[in-house]
């Protein structure tokens, strides 16, 4: 699916595709104090992952999927 941008939070839903990466980067640059919510996220494309690794945003909610969470933590922490 996609990313829903709320005021200060970006909600990642289902599997987020590569198309979203550019928008995510833009949004993160515009909203430096924003947070990311992975509660409903099952997967995100590597392009999104590297955007987050480069920008280092705050993660508000980690994914429920334990394995995905471990991978994300190993990349972002």
């Amino acid at each position: 699916m996609a990313i829903t941008y709320q005021k200060k939070v970006a909600l990642f839903q289902d599997a987020v595709g590569a198309e979203e990466a550019e928008g995510l980067l833009e949004w993160l640059l515009k909203n430096p104090k924003s947070q990311l919510n992975f509660a409903d996220c099952r997967h995100l494309h590597a392009a999104n992952l590297q955007v987050m690794m480069a920008v280092k945003p705050v993660i508000a909610v980690w994914p429920k999927d334990a394995k995905l969470r471990t991978w994300l933590e190993s990349a972002l922490k």
């Binding site: 550019e22 590597a46 392009a47 999104n48 590297q50 991978w71 190993s74």
Partner: peptide, 23 residues
């Protein structure tokens, strides 16, 4: 155990090419 690392140091976020895989 796993880790994800940048291949080259990250460029400034404003100059980042989201579609150039650096992982």
């Amino acid at each position: 155990w796993q880790s994800v690392l940048p291949r080259e140091p990250w460029s400034a976020p404003a100059e980042l090419d989201a579609y150039h895989c650096n992982l």
